[in-house]
């Protein structure tokens, strides 16, 4: 029973990964791509790891999977934040149809 739950989590995780990567290709500028990709791929990979933890019988694999899950959940938003800030400092403009930019107003 718990094995089928694990397989369902694996499939849901891969589905979210796929949606995140479609967002990476479809959305118009760096910041939107970063949003879609970071959220979906983080949750997708965490679901894959959770499915692996449920399916396995080995204790060490489960422990390492939990460490990996917590690590990804902490570091992925941090990396996204660093990338967004780096992209803004590197001079990448917002999309043409963006409606508000308080950051640029405060910088100048």
């Amino acid at each position: 029973m718990i094995k089928y739950l694990g397989i369902a989590l694996l499939y849901a995780g891969v589905l979210f990964d796929l949606i995140g990567c479609i967002g990476l290709v479809r959305l118009p500028d760096v910041y939107n791509r970063l949003q879609a990709a970071t959220k979906c791929v983080t949750l997708g990979t965490c679901m894959i790891l959770a499915g692996t933890i449920l399916m396995t019988t080995s204790l060490i694999l489960a422990i390492q999977g939990i460490i990996c899950l917590v690590f990804i959940l902490i570091t992925s938003p941090t990396a996204a934040h660093a990338l967004a800030r780096g992209a803004y400092k590197a001079g990448v403009k917002l999309w043409d149809k963006s409606i508000v930019d308080h950051y640029g107003e405060d910088q100048s």
């Binding site: 995780g13 891969v14 990964d17 995140g20 990567c21 990476l24 760096v30 791509r33 970063l34 990709a37 970071t38 791929v41 983080t42 997708g44 990979t45 894959i48 790891l49 990996c68 990804i72 992925s76 990396a79 996204a80 990338l83 780096g86 992209a87 590197a90 990448v92």
Partner: peptide, 16 residues
């Protein structure tokens, strides 16, 4: 920056 974002996402996908 677009390429860097894609590289970051590729790394997380490979973990999966």
């Amino acid at each position: 920056p677009d390429r860097t974002v894609a590289i970051d996402i590729l790394g997380i996908l490979l973990v999966g």
